[in-house]
Design a protein around this nucleic acid. Structure first.
Lengths: 191, 191
DNA sequence: TCGGAAGCGGAATTCCTGTTCCACTTATTG
DNA sequence: CAATAAGTGGAACAGGAATTCCGCTTCCGA
């Protein structure tokens, strides 16, 4: 039985409610201060005891990973939407720009974007693969049509996101990562 | 009496030796694994007890900041060298590229590049100012000569370094940050 | 050479957080 | 409405890492 099935069927009504409260609290706090979140904090914010969190998630990391996974699926949606855009360059630029927008304001997610392996976000391989498909199509199409430099490929995507995301995460007082993005997009043009 | 003066004059011979051993050990370990360094580790690597470290540096952070400061002065040298290059574009590109090279291989320094305020690198303002002067001249010259996009300015420098550095720091198994740098440099061209 | 000040080592302390445990509640089911 | 299994709270525990403390050692000037 998967974790999802357990949530749906087996769980007692009050337990299901708590699970959701925990999840919501964790998401909010993790988004606010990724590295500083503490279990006690999440618990009190959710109105439960720490023990209750551990009934639902084996470790802190598991809880955080679960949230990153949920959040990650949005990327696939973004990619599928971008794929509908006719102009090849506009499609790539939208893909990248929208991905950045999605990450903005969620420090926890930013951290996950930056540390591919470092922080052991294991178990989101499936989501990554689901995103890679449409994203690769968009990028390859742009390359073939000459809309971006010929050596650009999907392999560059994580690296670019890492760089731009770090600007969001570390930059003092939200100075604009958009500028960083603009430079990158300009750099992607053929020539 | 400044810390430097104390090192020169007041310190007992053996104490001065120890101070240097500690500094060297800390530099090496911090470069290798910035976030993982421990005081015990630095101490044993330097061949002293932890207590001895605390005789020389009030806190761990102070020790690390001291190292970052030392390292930072190299940037100014790089900028002064780059300023001697005639071609304005080549000068900027050298400035940026060499700065990256300087940071490569030193995880601790990479971390310092990324977190301007986060990790409280207080006390290196002077070094930063010394670097800003020649760097600003190089960038302004390039802008005026039309060698780079007209909206580029020194204010962008920290942001770019943050992005590229994060690629070095987080990228799995040293995948090339050079590519990131190339994209940025391409993006800086006028157009 | 000697006295005392400076310096040293490293066990002990402190603080901080994730995780465990279990007596106590609460939902569910017949 | 029991009986019971499921779920809960939060104090206690555990382990990690920075920092302190102090009896002992080493340097250095007279």
């Amino acid at each position: 039985m998967t974790s999802a099935e357990k949530t749906e069927k087996t769980l007692r009504a009050d337990a299901r409610r708590n699970r959701e409260k925990i999840f919501a609290a964790a998401r909010e706090l993790f988004a606010r201060d990724a590295e500083g979140v503490q279990m006690e904090e999440i618990a009190s914010h959710a109105g439960v005891g720490v023990g209750t969190i551990y009934r639902h998630f084996p470790t802190k990391q598991a809880l955080l990973t679960e949230m990153v996974r949920t959040r990650f699926s949005r990327f696939t949606e973004i990619a599928l939407e971008a794929e509908r855009i006719d102009d090849p360059r506009e499609a790539v630029e939208t893909l990248i720009r929208q991905s950045c927008v999605e990450v903005e304001g969620d420090a926890g997610f930013q951290l996950a974007m930056m540390s591919p392996d470092e922080l052991e976000w294991e178990g989101i391989e499936q989501e990554k693969a689901a995103f890679a498909e449409p994203a690769t199509r968009i990028i390859d199409r742009a390359v073939e049509s000459g809309a971006v430099r010929s050596d650009f490929s999907f392999a560059d995507f994580p690296m670019l996101m890492c760089g731009i995301t770090s600007t969001m995460y570390f930059a003092p007082a939200g100075s604009d990562w958009q500028r960083h993005l603009d430079l990158i997009l300009a750099g992607l043009r053929p020539g």
